[in-house]
């Protein structure tokens, strides 16, 4: 009976993570259906177990109790990951870009598309003066000013790869680690670490809430 209830609770948690959007912090949207189906499967398994063992009392081993405690914590404490910390610990190689997708027009490029473009075409002068309209979180750097960044994933947070762009932060503006910002401005060429690099020159910086789907493919 208790085992069945626990299975149903876990199934509900999985299903609810999909419905509430919590899963967007962990997994690409294309896989959400699969996770939702596993939640339904867990609930069904719990219901079947409930019917079969109705009225029986069970003695549960301690891992089941700890699992119950974790389930409760998942329900009560909303996730609030530090993307900046995660980005620090991840390799820099971006997944291959979706084919021929990042070209047009500059103001429609996402931050990840900008990073892919600048990595495939490393000549910053080619994008000098292009309009920029991006959003991302503030990624603190050990050496140098913070970047505006996004995490890209093939599947889930476990394979997350950061994509960051240098920003010429205006005087008086203090970017806070993990703060989500929308930046409108244009690309310029600047010297950083004795190299010419493309730098975002913001015209407006607007703090925004974390997007519903913060991970980009």
């Amino acid at each position: 009976m208790t085992r069945a209830a626990l299975l149903i609770v876990w199934g509900w948690i999985v299903l609810w993570s999909v419905i509430s959007g919590r899963l967007d912090l962990l997994l690409r949207g294309v896989f959400h259906g699969l996770v939702g189906a596993s939640g339904v499967a867990l609930i069904l398994a719990g219901v079947v177990l409930l019917i079969r063992r109705r009225g029986r009392r069970e003695r549960l081993p301690w891992p089941w109790w700890s699992s119950s405690a974790i389930a409760l914590l998942v329900l009560l404490v909303p996730p609030n990951p530090s993307f900046s910390d995660l980005a620090d610990s991840r390799p820099q190689g971006l997944p291959e870009p979706p084919e021929l997708a990042f070209v047009l027009p500059p103001e429609q490029r996402t931050l990840t598309e900008w990073v892919r473009l600048l990595r495939s075409q490393q000549d910053p002068d080619l994008v000098d003066g292009n309009p920029v309209n991006i959003s991302g979180f503030v990624w603190t750097q050990k050496n140098g000013p913070p970047l505006i960044a996004r995490l890209t994933v093939r599947c889930c947070l476990a394979d997350a790869t950061p994509a960051g762009l240098p920003v010429d932060w205006p005087d008086g503006f203090e970017p806070t680690t993990n703060q989500w910002l929308a930046i409108q401005g244009e690309m310029a060429v600047a010297m950083r670490n004795e190299q010419r690099v493309a730098v975002v020159m913001p015209k407006t910086i607007t703090p925004i809430p974390r997007p519903k789907r913060p991970l980009e493919p």
Partner: peptide, 17 residues
Amino acid sequence: GGGGLVVPTYNGINLQP
């Protein structure tokens, strides 16, 4: 640079991927 097209239309020109 690749990836895009300039397409003439009856009303003007389009820039598209």
